[in-house]
Design a protein around this nucleic acid. Structure first.
Lengths: 151, 151
DNA sequence: GTATGAAACTTTAAGCTTGAAGATTTTAGC
DNA sequence: GCTAAAATCTTCAAGCTTAAAGTTTCATAC
């Protein structure tokens, strides 16, 4: 294989390593400061951006995870009282999931801390580097979308 | 919070999304073409880079995952015949893990395909964008290392 | 040499994740 | 209306992941 393909491989490995490190730091912070997990946070973040709630299938679409996965996480969030399930009028298969007032309040605290953590971690990234990274990520995302749609 | 911190948050969310998409594509390819998983591939890649083998603790260090995690994955790779465990002379607690000849051959095939997949996915990333991304990732990694060491 | 603590590893409990199979309900074609 | 296909969701089996607790072995200090 060519040198350029080795470079791409190296870039991917660095990308992977950095992302995992950030995720790992967030995971630990969420656990220690809020006794919660990254998947729970992700679900609540999605619901927070959609105040009117999301159906299970919409949720798994937004988060890019499997259907069965969301079932379990929402189940636990309901037990915690952070989330509730409503019936969807006119479709007895579906259910809509929303944050409870309690869940909104809790998520607001978590989101603020989360933004602070990210701010610190990315503080040393220059605007130029951020710009380059954005472009690169776009190119990658586009490539994968195209392939997805081609299937 | 400031605009700049929102920008950083946005950058992180894009980074996360792109990484997950790539991982998801790799996972699917590995499953369909080699009936294996990403964690197994990661372990074999680490062992391939260290021909003389790695101790369990070294392996979990390199991969940045927990000890118990590696135990399970190696167990399954041993069952597959791709990996073997040797005794470490002079230390009856430790064991050294290595690829079998069979494992080396299998990994060679997987690695070649893997490089091709990455090559495609990252094809549209310009050298400038790649450069910017590298810098950004370095900055992030450094920040996290510093914090790690400060604890 | 013996106790104490550290190191290497495994086990366990809980939760996350996926793909596939199953149950129920809705939609569309006839 | 009836049937077949599709959609929505849950359940299941297998595997991944972590933190914490446990086991065995080694190193150190006395």
């Amino acid at each position: 294989m060519s040198t350029i393909s080795k470079d791409r491989l190296r870039l991917w490995l660095r990308l992977l390593k950095a992302t995992r490190s950030v995720e790992s730091a967030l995971r630990e912070n969420l656990r220690q400061e809020f006794q919660t997990t990254l998947p729970r946070f992700d679900v609540m973040a999605a619901l927070s951006r959609h105040g009117q709630g999301l159906k299970m299938s919409e949720l798994s679409n937004v988060l890019k995870v499997s259907n069965g996965n969301v079932t379990g996480i929402v189940e636990r969030l309901v037990e915690d009282g952070h989330v509730l399930r409503e019936k969807v009028p006119g479709d007895r298969r579906a259910s809509r999931v929303r944050l409870t007032p309690d869940g909104e309040a809790e998520f607001a605290r978590q989101a603020e801390a989360h933004e602070g953590w990210i701010d610190e971690i990315f503080a040393a990234v220059s605007p130029e580097a951020a710009q380059g990274m954005s472009e690169a990520l776009d190119a990658v995302a586009r490539q994968l979308e195209d392939k997805e749609n081609a299937q």
